[in-house]
C-alpha cells in the first residue's frame, strides 16, 4: 500500500459534504431562479444546439411535434400547461421518463438525440422548491 487511507469518516469529511451541499444550493439558487418574464409560457425545442421551434403553449392548444436528431425520433406532446415526450426510440429513454414539465426553467434533455425542450417565460412567482431532501 502506497498510503493507507483513513477508513472512518471524520469531521473533515463533513467539511467536504458541506462544501458539495453548499455548491448544490448555490447552483440551485443561481439556475432555478431564472426570473419569469411577461411572455407567455413557451416551449423551446432545440436540436444539436440550434433552436428549431418556439411554441407558445396557450396559443397552440393540444398539439404534437415530431423531432429528429442524432438518428432518433422523438414524439413531443404539448398542451396549454404541460409538455412531455410521449415516445422516443433512443436507447436511454431518459427523456420519456422525465415525464411532464409545466414550469418556466424546466427542461427535458435527450442526450442521444441531442434534443432539448425548455420552458421559458410565464410567471415563476408560485414556483418555489418541489421538495427539500436531506
Amino acid at each position: 500500500m502506497r498510503r493507507s487511507p483513513k477508513l472512518r469518516p471524520n469531521l473533515w469529511d463533513g467539511v467536504v459534504v458541506l462544501a458539495v451541499a453548499a455548491l448544490a444550493v448555490a447552483c440551485a439558487v443561481g439556475i432555478w431562479q431564472g426570473g419569469g418574464s411577461q411572455e407567455a409560457l413557451t416551449a423551446v425545442i432545440s436540436v444539436d444546439g440550434t433552436e428549431v421551434e418556439r411554441i407558445p403553449l396557450d396559443q397552440a392548444g393540444e398539439t404534437r411535434r415530431t423531432v429528429e436528431g442524432g438518428g432518433y425520433t422523438l414524439e413531443i406532446c404539448l398542451t396549454d400547461t404541460e409538455v412531455w415526450v410521449e415516445h422516443s426510440d433512443c436507447p436511454t429513454q431518459d427523456c420519456v421518463h422525465t415525464g411532464r414539465i409545466s414550469r418556466s426553467g424546466q427542461s427535458i434533455v435527450c442526450l442521444p438525440a441531442r434534443v432539448v425542450v425548455e420552458l421559458e417565460g410565464g410567471s415563476t412567482a408560485d414556483d418555489g422548491l418541489d421538495a427539500v431532501i436531506g
Binding site: V17, V20, A21, L23, A24, V25, C27, A28, I31, W32, S46, D48, G49, T50, G105, Q106, S107, V109, L111, R114, V116, E118, I133, G134
Partner: peptide
C-alpha cells in the same frame, strides 16, 4: 452535456446531481 448539446439546459440538473452524489459518494 453542455458542450455536446451546445445548450445550457443540462445545468438545470446539476443541483440534483450534486445532491445525489453525496449519497453515491
Amino acid at each position: 452535456a453542455v458542450l455536446t448539446l451546445g445548450n445550457t439546459a443540462p445545468l438545470y440538473y446539476l443541483p440534483v446531481l450534486l445532491g445525489v452524489s453525496l449519497l453515491t459518494g
